[in-house]
Simulated scan of single mutants.
Amino acid sequence: MPTTSTESVASARAWRVVLEKIETDLLEGRLGPGDRLASERDLATSLGVGRSSVREALRVLEVMGLLRTGTGSGPHAGAIITATPQGGMSALLRLQVAAQGFPLDDVVATRLVLETAVAEALANMTDPTLDAAHAILDAMDAEELTPAEFLVLDAQLHLALAEASGNQVIAATMAGLRTAIESYVLAGVERIPDWDAAATRLRAEHCAIVAAVSSGDAQAARTLIHDHITGYYAAAALSRPSA
């Protein structure tokens, strides 16, 4: 008997039933990081869906970074909930950025919220780990850097500070926005009449931000990173965020 359109729609949506079940189990504490999911056969039987729908749901969860799967038998086989889904979150943001799903002004405003919070959090730490940030600052001092190379390091510095804050959500968000950040700051180079002078100013601002963080001056760190971000947009005539 031919499959009806209603049956086709139901089949196409069946994998969502699996996702919703796993989400509910996570929210209610029946599943957690490191736990193994039931077998495909058991999930299909208990939820009344086909095994192909279970496999589709598991693929979605794996792409999202919430699940890892292994074949064969043993402790690493099957589908296991992961404890660090940052990679999936970053990947989803990068896809949205690639599809031009975020207006530039929204990216700018989000950076201001996240990075001022990062600066304050780092400044309030007793001994923040800033080795990666210092290494990037040293790399940015190289005279032979092209504007593109300099600005890639610039984005790496901001991501390194986010990672040093220890806030995994902020770090994942910054990683996901990194492509967008690199793209628009590079687009702004053409609008800056004296790039060498601008690069010198950016180096000084970066050093001042890291110094304020290291000295524990949270207010100065917040102000410096806010002015650093908005200042570049103003100089490049890209955006004038009000936040």
Results as ranks from 00 to 15, higher is better:
Asp127Thr: 15
Val210Tyr: 03
Gln96Arg: 13
Arg111Glu: 05
Leu202Cys: 12
Gly72Glu: 08
Ile209Val: 05
Leu19Met: 06
Glu149Ser: 12
Arg240Phe: 12
Pro33Met: 00
Thr173Trp: 04
Gly34Lys: 08
Trp15Cys: 02
Ile136Gln: 13
Val189Ala: 00
Gly88Asn: 04
Ala237Ser: 12
Ile181Lys: 11
Ala235Leu: 12
Arg222Ile: 10
Arg59Thr: 07
Gly188Leu: 03
Val118Ser: 03
Ile80Arg: 04
Ile136Thr: 15
Asp227Ala: 05
Ser5Gln: 15
Gly34Pro: 01
Gln96Met: 15
Glu40Asp: 15
His158Arg: 11
Met125Gln: 15
Leu202Tyr: 07
Ser215Gly: 14
Leu92Gly: 15
Ile170His: 07
Ala98Cys: 09
Leu145Ser: 07
Glu23Lys: 11
Ala121Ser: 14
Ala171Gln: 05
Thr4Glu: 13
Leu31Gln: 00
Thr24Pro: 04
Glu115Asp: 14
Gly176Val: 04
Arg13Ala: 06
Gln100Cys: 06
Leu202Ser: 05
Leu151Val: 05
Phe150Arg: 03
Thr84Leu: 10
Gly188Trp: 00
Ala175Pro: 06
Ile225Arg: 11
Ala204Lys: 13
Ala142Phe: 06
Gly87Gln: 01
Leu238Gln: 08
Ala139Ile: 09
Ala119Asn: 05
Asp106Tyr: 10
Thr223Pro: 04
Ala221Tyr: 03
Ala204Met: 11
Glu182Gly: 01
Pro128Glu: 05
Arg51His: 05
Ala197His: 14
Val118Cys: 04
Arg59Lys: 08
Leu151Lys: 06
Thr116Lys: 14
Val213Gly: 01
Ala212Thr: 06
Arg178Phe: 07
Gly78Phe: 03
Pro2Asp: 11
Thr4Ala: 14
Gly78Ser: 06
Asp154Trp: 03
Val185Ile: 03
Arg178Tyr: 09
Thr126Ile: 14
Thr126Gln: 13
Ala187Tyr: 00
Gly72Ile: 08
Ala77Asn: 06
Thr24Glu: 03
Leu26Tyr: 00
Ser90Gln: 03
Gly231Asn: 06
His134Pro: 07
Ala10Met: 13
Ala44Trp: 01
Ser5Ile: 15
Asp217Arg: 12
Val18Lys: 01
Gly74Glu: 01
Val169Asp: 11
Ala109Trp: 05
Asn124Glu: 10
Ala44Arg: 13
Asp154Gly: 02
Gly88Pro: 02
Val210Met: 01
Ile225Asp: 08
Ser52Gly: 14
Phe102Ala: 14
Leu202Lys: 09
His226Phe: 06
Ala79Val: 10
Pro241Asn: 13
Gly176Met: 01
Asp131Met: 07
Glu20Ala: 05
Leu161Asp: 03
Gly32His: 02
Ala235Gly: 04
Leu37Ser: 00
Leu112Ala: 06
Gly78Cys: 05
Leu157His: 01
Asp131Thr: 15
